[in-house]
Design a protein around this nucleic acid. Structure first.
Length: 340
DNA sequence: AAATCAGCCAACCGCGAGGCT
DNA sequence: GAGCCTCGCGGTTGGCTGATT
């Protein structure tokens, strides 16, 4: 048995709204508000519309200060960065863009931004393919004349030059201080705990200190990434420690990351103009791992959902045990979703 | 000029969450 | 605690419009 319809489908009008309907709805809400009940609203006004339809019309079109079209470059970047971070949680993304509705952003993403980014990726892939072919030819030529060396391990993945970290301050004006980052992460679905030790105990966590010397001012706070000691615990939880406060990314947030963009980012993030700050760290770690001889890196494959990849190094755990922190550049609070 | 295609966007639909009784 | 109701969200659809053939 299906769910009962929210209204009498036979007696409600569907399709585009007429100016008269708009005027009725707008003037009523401006005078009386919604009354806290959208379902009852259309009857009060005398509109033959579903309450949900009225709500949608108001929120997406009639509400004051709504902006339509004409997305700026900055808005593009914010949308892309948030999408890559949290996936298709349009209401959260819309909350970052005053005057924009979730529906608007969703449409904009589906019709333009996605194509724009994927189009770039295609070009990048093509260029990389050509580049790899060239390098492969060179390698084979040199193999003929001399004994080969370590390069054999990564014939198809020439080591990418590691780009210098890009300071946040130049890229993302919203994240200008500790408070704004914290606020932002909470918005994305994380939660802070007042008792950091509690989380350690409860989740049996190790602490992975981050080299704060690489953090550009004003991001001079100590950022720690905590990961489950035993990946098989299936905790699938990422915890950040910011100046003694813990932030936990919820599993459902982690899992919302779209696979297509994961590979896209790893392909060559430098080409996604203006968004480098999002994934510099990820790409650095992956290229490092490849250079270290990892044929196929799967640092998120359903075991641990670290923010940073576990550096794909067999020494990773050993270093932790010996109290020798792995250094990594703190570029952002990006979390990595579970592999599907 | 007509047909077809592609892009865009408003609106619909179903579901989950949360509040209320 | 169960059931009902409403809200809010994200995915999807369908129609309009401009471009292309």
């Amino acid at each position: 048995m299906g769910r009962a319809p929210c209204c009498d489908k036979a007696n409600v009008k569907k399709g585009p709204w007429s100016p008269e309907e708009d005027a009725k709805l707008k003037s009523y809400i401006e005078q009386h508000g919604t009354g806290g009940n959208w379902i009852a609203l259309p009857q009060k006004i005398g509109l033959k519309r579903c309450g949900k339809s009225c709500r949608l019309r108001w929120l997406n079109y009639l509400r004051p200060n709504i902006k339509h079209g004409g997305f700026s470059e900055e808005e593009d970047n914010i949308i892309c960065s948030l999408y890559i971070s949290i996936g298709s949680r349009w209401s959260i993304i819309a909350a970052q863009l005053p005057g924009r509705t979730d529906n608007d952003i969703k449409n904009y993403w589906n019709t333009r931004l996605k194509k724009k980014l994927l189009g770039k990726q295609r070009k990048v892939k093509q260029a990389r393919r050509n580049n790899c072919l060239k390098q492969e030819m060179m390698r084979k030529m040199s193999e003929n004349s001399m004994v080969s060396d370590n390069d054999n391990q990564n014939p198809y993945w020439p080591e990418l030059p590691v780009a210098a970290p890009i300071p946040y301050s130049n890229q993302e004006p919203r994240f200008h201080d500790h408070a704004s980052i914290r606020k932002f992460l909470i918005k994305l679905g994380g939660r802070f705990s007042d008792d950091n030790q509690l989380i350690h105990d409860r989740m049996n966590l190790h602490q992975l200190p981050v080299n704060v010397s690489s953090i550009q001012p004003p991001y001079e706070h100590s950022i720690n990434v905590l990961s489950a000691a035993d990946p098989m615990d299936a905790i699938n939880t990422t915890v950040y420690d910011i100046d003694g406060e813990s932030l936990q990314m919820l599993p459902e947030v982690q899992s919302s990351f779209p696979a297509e963009f994961e590979e896209m980012i790893f392909s060559n993030p430098q080409r996604l103009d203006g968004m480098e700050f999002l994934y510099e760290d990820m790409i650095n770690n992956r290229s490092t791992a490849r250079a270290a001889g990892g044929e196929s890196i799967s640092w998120g494959t359903g075991t641990s959902s670290l923010v940073f990849p576990p550096f794909a190094s067999s020494n990773y755990e050993g270093d932790l045990q010996q109290g020798m922190p792995q250094e990594c550049a703190f570029d952002d609070f990006r979390y990595r979703p579970r592999a599907q």
